[in-house]
């Protein structure tokens, strides 16, 4: 019943299992505490109620500007502008999310796509503990090399309440404990899409270490995303997260 090839797969899985069995939970918790402090040595994140980030990318010669406004714990709005081509806004008010574009109208975001936004929102709360988001965090024994950094590989499975069983893989460099890479599957309006995000050029902004340049690799295509501005605790009205009137 157990053919040679099956046996080989079974042995390989055992082997792989041994490699990634990794740290015990206590050691992981210690590491998580260090990671939390690494990019926020002065504990600023606990005070962040709102944040505004302006980023810019050029893909295939096309400039794309994005402004993200977060009001924690559960409101976000993303305005994307491709000058001369189109604009698009996505907003989430803590319960419902919409995508609005003059060309394609208003679309309520539902199902897995909405779950994906909710998970993303919670995960990005500056003061959040990873243990509050992920029910299982596995750190591989073996360090992986990301660019010039030796990194911990952390495989994080979201809690059931987020309706996502796909783990997010995070890579933190061993020296500075800053996030260097992330692999994630995003549920988009067209279905699940694998993405790889590589972070670099960490600079101290608002007393925190913030990656000012990142690369998104999706379907083999890479986008360099540059942070132009990052503000915290700016007054933001709740109304900007609500559904706009349908035209």
């Amino acid at each position: 019943m157990f053919g040679k090839s099956n046996l080989m797969v079974f042995v390989c899985l055992l082997f792989v299992g041994n490699i990634v069995s990794g740290m015990d939970d206590n050691a992981v918790n210690v590491l998580l505490a260090k990671i939390k402090k690494a990019d926020d040595p002065e504990g600023v994140k606990a005070t962040i109620k709102t944040q505004i980030q302006k980023v810019e990318t050029i893909f295939s010669g096309q400039k794309i500007s994005t402004i993200t406004i977060d009001k924690f714990p559960n409101k976000t709005r993303i305005d994307v502008n491709m000058p001369g081509v189109m604009t698009s806004t996505t907003c989430y008010n803590g319960k419902t999310a919409w995508e609005i574009s003059p060309a394609t109208g208003v679309r309520e975001i539902k199902g897995k796509e909405l779950d994906s936004i909710k998970l993303d929102m919670v995960r990005r709360i500056p003061s959040v503990n990873q243990r509050d988001v992920f029910e299982k965090i596995v750190v591989a024994d073996k360090l992986e090399t990301i660019g010039e950094f030796k990194c911990y590989k952390m495989t994080c499975t979201p809690k059931k309440e987020f309706n996502s069983t796909t783990p997010i893989v995070l890579y933190y460099d061993k020296e500075k404990l800053l996030l260097r890479k992330m692999n994630i599957v995003v549920d988009s309006k067209m279905g699940p899409m694998k993405m790889e995000l590589t972070l670099e050029d960490y600079k101290k902004v608002n007393k925190m270490w913030v990656s000012m340049l990142s690369t998104i690799d999706q379907m083999g295509m890479k986008l360099k995303v540059k942070v132009l501005e990052y503000k915290i605790n700016v007054k933001v009205d709740d109304s900007i997260f609500e559904k706009p009137k349908s035209k």
């Binding site: 491709m82 994906s116 992330m182 994630i184 309006k189 998104i216 995303v225």
Partner: peptide, 9 residues
């Protein structure tokens, strides 16, 4: 941050 740009590809 990465989430927002994904749709544009």
């Amino acid at each position: 941050m990465f989430f927002k740009i994904k749709v544009f590809i």
